[in-house]
Design a protein around this nucleic acid. Structure first.
Lengths: 236, 236
DNA sequence: AATATTAATTGTCTTTTTTACACTATTAAA
DNA sequence: TTTAATAGTGTAAAAAAGACAATTAATATT
């Protein structure tokens, strides 16, 4: 017994993979090796297979490109304009992933001609991928204002100046150091380490790391990482 | 030229339609007239047609059931476990709609044996529809804490006590009248009308209505409708 | 050895926002 | 006119957020 009278459609997953290099937000793009739009830049995507869920498809695709699993990733939105792919109708479900750029394993992705692009200097992207990225950034700004997700972009140990630069980069604003530090430490999400990062100053900045237990318990709580007047309008 | 080697899948849209009757939150459900699960209760759904987007499919389906269009509705999440429908694999994209229960046009839906159920007394639902509703409620609680979406559940003119009851119902809590009134009026989203609703008290409560211009402009802004300690954890 | 340089670290006061809390006003019904 | 039932309103205390700049630590330079 089947729903025999109904039309079946191609369903794909596209991964919007963000990284942060200490200064800029980056997007991991691939150069398509196949038509249509061969050699144009694109998000990494793939068709959903008969026996896998969308989440599984997204994980498979992220693994293919980056070698990484257990990465922060969530469903963002479906893109379903019938003509969005000129070859044939494909419904794409966009996923957003945040990864520590240093964990990215370049050897695995060589097949895909992948490259990190600064989000300020994106190349032209195929289909509606530009729109996907814009929406992803808007949603990221919104969510990161209240939830500690940006930590996923940093290595295990990071300094407060690095953390602040990451927030300042996303919202393109300057935040007062003292107020920022107070807010962040008041969340109790961070543990101070004993060593310092001396790569960017003579004095050196103490490393911090996530207090994993506290982090998981409080992840869904509402925090307030950026000043009120920088909080972006929501999406939709 | 087609993506000929790929498997195509059925894609459906399911509508989670919320209403509020002054006391309780309601969900509009239909009694399925066809197998599988004939006569069981279900969300209203339908397959995505070849020439329509998911948004269009959701609107079509909502219109079929309720006679309403131009309704607040947004994509929530995809449900894609391969075995979620026992007949055949179907990827469902869940949409959440908020409607003024009084606008619901009963004559149109008679085909579907539709009924409003209090969310406190839901019947068993088919497939994973129960899960969809739970997630929808969690997300609604989260979003409504910061954005003025619940107004979509009320008629054009409503009173402050009605409004407060609606918030108290969603978060299952009591809110101080004075603080609630101050917060709500400080958003500038409301216009005070000159007449009163006397149906629930002798004194009567003044009607208010949305200041449409202000509402649209400020819709995506962050507001704060409920006390801090009632703000729910986010979803995910 | 002293000094210069560079970025990290730290505290206080003011303003704004939120919360806690209880009496008066209005009108229909008895 | 009394009663009953819900609507409407203000203030003070607490908490959170914002504005603001001097000191510290370590290295590099002279």
């Amino acid at each position: 017994m089947k729903y025999s009278s109904q039309t079946r459609l191609l369903v794909a997953v596209d991964c919007i993979i963000f990284g942060f290099d200490g200064t800029d937000y980056k997007l991991l793009l691939i150069q398509r090796g196949f038509a249509p739009e061969k050699e144009k830049w694109s998000l990494m995507g793939g068709f959903v297979q008969p026996e896998e869920s969308l989440d599984e498809a997204a994980e498979r695709i992220l693994k293919q490109l980056t070698g990484l699993h257990d990465v922060y990733m969530e469903e963002m939105q479906a893109f379903s304009q019938p003509d969005r792919d000129p070859i044939e109708r494909v419904i794409a479900v966009a996923y957003v992933a945040l990864i520590d750029i240093e964990k990215y394993q370049t050897q695995i992705n060589d097949d895909f001609h992948a490259r990190w692009y600064s989000i300020k200097e994106l190349p032209n992207l195929i289909f509606d991928h530009k729109k996907m990225v814009e929406i992803a950034l808007t949603k990221l700004r919104y969510k990161a204002a209240f939830h500690p997700i940006l930590f996923e972009l940093l290595p295990e140990k990071f300094t407060l100046p690095q953390l602040q630069a990451m927030y300042e980069g996303l919202y393109d604003t300057k935040i007062d150091k003292r107020n920022f530090t107070r807010k962040v430490l008041s969340t109790k999400l961070l543990k101070k380490e004993n060593d310092k990062d001396k790569s960017s100053s003579k004095k050196g900045a103490f490393y911090y790391s996530l207090d994993e237990d506290h982090y998981k318990e409080n992840f869904t709580n509402i925090h307030n990482f950026i000043p009120r007047n920088e909080i972006p309008a929501g999406v939709e």
